[in-house]
């Protein structure tokens, strides 16, 4: 028996919108810890890891660990039927082949339930070891999104370099080149608008902008984004989900042939 009641239902709507273009089908793993997901894109270049901790739900019942395979496009269709202010409850039975999404309007005058078919998904879980990163950049998520969008109109790849000077995003295309440097900026009142650069060593890595732009679909989940970089490791782009957990995207770097 599974019953998860999420008062801020819009969070689930946003999470699915953030990952559905990257991943088609995924197993949602439910345990006492929370609801989690790990899935790779079809080319195995990018990975999304999601955690919604049990404490973040108003009611959380998960009698045994279960893995529920869902088509994210179908899930998105159903969750789009929930209002942004709705409370969403996810219900399932052990061994069942469907899951039910129940939507309650804030004043309880409309209650809907949508039953979705589950699917068997063979998914490979990767072990992601804890790593010491050479540099960790925290910046406003909207700023990161803007940079990725702007640069992708000029080039296909971006070089992200962190030095004492700041974090530099560089691209090159047929029409020319672009460099955007963001310096550390802690002096403003609002911490969400700060850019904070922790650097142990300078690092410079190349990534496909197509994937980074896809990750920025999570921008509305968090005011800030954390970019963790180490040479010869996938970059981690993390959006914290207030009081609940995170959505992390891992992207393998490109290397010179």
């Amino acid at each position: 028996m599974l019953e998860l009641r999420l008062v801020q239902g819009s969070l689930l709507k946003k999470v699915i919108e953030a990952i559905k273009d990257l991943v088609t089908d995924a197993n949602f793993d439910c345990s006492a810890t929370g609801l989690s997901l790990q899935a790779m894109d079809s080319s195995h270049v990018a990975l999304v890891a999601l955690l919604l901790r049990s404490e973040g739900f108003e009611h959380y019942r998960c009698d045994r660990n279960i893995s529920m395979g869902m088509n994210l496009n179908n899930m998105s269709k159903m969750l789009k039927c929930a209002g942004n202010d709705d409370i969403i409850t996810i219900k399932g039975d052990d061994g069942g082949d469907t899951i039910t999404f129940m939507f309650e309007s804030p004043n309880q005058d409309k209650i809907s339930d949508f039953e979705m078919k589950l699917m068997d998904i063979d998914s490979e879980h990767l072990g992601i070891p804890e790593a010491e990163y050479h540099a960790i950049v925290k910046m406003p998520s909207s700023e990161f999104s803007r940079i990725c969008k702007d640069l992708s109109s000029i080039g296909d790849t971006v070089v992200i370099s962190v030095t004492k000077e700041g974090v530099k995003f560089t691209t090159r295309g047929d029409i020319g080149t672009a460099n955007i440097v963001c310096r550390q900026n802690k002096t403003i009142d609002k911490p969400d608008e700060a850019t904070i650069i922790e650097m142990n060593e300078p690092v410079s890595l190349t990534f496909a902008l197509r994937y980074l732009n896809s990750f920025t679909k999570a921008t509305s989940l968090s005011e800030s984004v954390t970019i963790s970089l180490s040479s010869d490791l996938p970059v981690v782009i993390e959006y914290k989900i207030a009081d609940m957990g995170y959505i992390r995207f891992y992207l393998a770097p490109k290397i010179e042939d």
């Binding site: 879980h125 072990g127 490791l233 891992y250 393998a252 290397i255």
Partner: peptide, 14 residues
């Protein structure tokens, strides 16, 4: 042109 690497080069299956 730089070559795209895949994740299994960095992370092993669990």
């Amino acid at each position: 042109k730089p070559k795209q690497q895949i994740l299994s080069r960095f992370f092993a299956p669990k």
